[in-house]
Design a protein around this nucleic acid. Structure first.
Lengths: 198, 198
DNA sequence: GGATTATTTGGAACGCGTATTAAATAATGT
DNA sequence: ACATTATTTAATACGCGTTCCAAATAATCC
């Protein structure tokens, strides 16, 4: 019953500790100097390892960015949750949540670009933010708000999907298409949820 | 009255001819081998000039990509226009146009990524597709369809903005968030325009 | 042909993300 | 201490977008 000779593989604890360390440094760089500061070379220096070591732990830079996504999405969810607490009327809660969602991204365009538009997001071989943290939980949050409006059961899913897509569309357009005279964001958002609360 | 000595600057014709040449080669590379094939080095070889010459004519790669945007957007507009011709009922025309818009991008995810998600699109110092070709004309097309529904005049602008943002949101989500079980795109799209046709 | 001026070129450089590989280092058992 | 094995490292390389700059080339006039 002899243990294997040689250096043992990384333990579960070591793996998690390293990933956490990388995540913290990546987030610090991002918050301090923006997205461009999160380069592999700069991040490895901050962590205190060689650039190639990052590739031994992560599939690529996008996987590292996903750690940032999780933090941003959690922050957005808190913001939305806080807005829902301001009222108890189902339609008003939904409206408040939608407005909070859109305003969060518009107030943090860098975050939006990080999560929705960075590093080949959307490529067929690149995962999206749906794999990050409890994102389905965020979708569920909106689904619950819609269910409280008491629509037909089969409608909840379609309405939820349309709501999420609509809110993301409003955020994207406001952030990226700045030289078009959009109506007030709140008005567009309310128009988008018009058919969802009907 | 002697003309200046020395080589004259590029004529208007020369400028346009070169830009057209670059545009054609960029489009050929893009259609043949995808977005990644449109590299400065590869494009300059195809055009038959030095890489730095491209920078003498364009502010950067993004400006070259805008030439591709114009072509893609024109193609999308044709697709949408063709769908509108299938019916004469205002609400049905709007629905057909919205579905055609969304299906165009979903059928051409590379085009969507090219126009909405490539090369720092959304950065505060980078222009968006709104500067490309007759984009305001495309917005106007949807505005006209909505105006034919006879809503209150002040409503047309908000409804148009919400429609465009909603359609783009649906396209973005379908293309980038593939590992979430979205409802059928047509159902989401119809739900998005529910409050616009009401 | 020479002078002048604008344009293009070639070469080098930078940091980027990523990949490769031999060497160095670390962590174990005997 | 040595052997073994896993991990990390350093160095190099690639193509990417972009920049710089002197030299080469092109297009004019005299």
């Amino acid at each position: 019953m002899t243990k294997a000779v040689g250096r043992p593989p990384r333990s579960e604890t070591e793996i998690i500790e390293f990933r956490t360390k990388v995540s913290q440094h990546a987030m610090a760089l991002y918050r301090q100097d923006g997205f461009e500061a999160v380069s592999i070379r700069r991040l490895s220096k901050a962590v205190g390892c060689a650039p190639t070591t990052l590739y031994a732990h992560f599939a690529g830079k996008t996987e590292i960015l996903m750690l940032l996504w999780a933090e941003v999405l959690a922050e957005m969810a808190e913001h939305v949750q806080a807005s829902v607490k301001t009222t108890s009327d189902p339609a008003e809660r939904l409206k408040a949540a939608a407005l909070a969602f859109v305003s969060y991204w518009i107030d943090h365009p860098d975050h939006f670009r990080l999560v929705f538009m960075s590093n080949d997001v959307g490529r067929s071989d690149v995962d999206s933010f749906i794999e990050t943290g409890d994102v389905l939980g965020y979708f569920q949050m909106f689904a619950d708000l819609i269910r409280n409006l008491d629509p037909k059961p089969g409608d909840v899913k379609v309405r939820t999907d349309a709501l999420v897509a609509g809110m993301i569309g409003v955020s994207l357009c406001s952030i990226t298409v700045r030289n078009y005279p959009w109506s007030a964001t709140s008005m567009i958002t309310n128009q988008v949820i018009e058919g969802i609360t009907a």
